[in-house]
Amino acid sequence: MIFRVFKRMFDFVSALLLLIAISPVFFLLVLMVRVKLGSPVFFTQERTGKDMKKFKLIKFRTMTNEKDKNGKLLPDEMRQTKFGGFLRSSSLDELPELLCIIKGDMSVIGPRPLPPIYDDYYTDKELKRFCVKGGLIPPDSIDDNAVISWDEQFEYEANYAENLSLINDMKIFFNVFKIIFQRKETDYGNFVRKPLYEERKNRDNRGE
């Protein structure tokens, strides 16, 4: 309980100070996204947070809004841009999430908040990830690979929620620069992972 109070205080103060410190970079990115990708500058989407409560996550846009002849958005891989890939690989697209942390919807460290469409596809153990707030820096940052499977990601997140502690947070926090380097080295910005619901539906159909 004491650590949770400390964690919230740390989240608020650190996010606020960091947002103030990087405000010139933040506004430069706003301008660059507007010029290169158009309007809107921000991408907002409903995500599932602590205790399965929904909130609006905000990021910088990394894709265009190109649509097919029927007015439907093209697949993600067709709407990616070189600049958007750079934002994702460098994690700069996630800077607006500092606002979510200040508001209290997210934490600096915690499971990555995912869309509600995934809510029905978690195992009982994986649902433990919702005992804590979603985070900007995920527990799987300590993994040696920038791109991991859904199963591996959820294993890290469930274990994190079960073993919430200052030591674990410090270990994950000091790996943040490693994960950013790994993302740039592996072209993470252009990686498109199969949606969880699609992957697990296919698995169920195969009887796995």
Rank of each mutant, 00 (worst) to 15 (best):
I20H: 11
Q80P: 04
L31Y: 05
R47Q: 09
L114A: 06
T62S: 08
M1A: 02
F12L: 12
I172N: 07
M9P: 04
P116M: 00
G71Q: 12
K53R: 15
F27Q: 07
I109E: 01
D169C: 09
N205Y: 10
Q80H: 04
A21T: 15
A146I: 04
M32F: 13
D124K: 14
E208N: 14
L87R: 02
F26N: 06
I2E: 12
D140G: 07
F12I: 09
P40S: 09
Y188W: 13
N163P: 08
E77W: 11
L18D: 09
N163G: 06
L87K: 01
K125G: 15
Q45Y: 06
S14M: 13
M32T: 12
R79Q: 01
S165A: 02
L29A: 05
K178W: 07
L18A: 15
M1W: 00
F12V: 10
P139N: 06
N65I: 10
K69A: 14
I179C: 02
M63Y: 03
D76K: 04
S165C: 09
P24Q: 08
E66P: 05
K59A: 05
Y122K: 03
I22N: 12
K178S: 15
D124N: 10
I102S: 02
P111W: 00
P115Y: 10
F26Y: 15
S107V: 02
M1L: 00
V192K: 09
D204Q: 14
I179D: 06
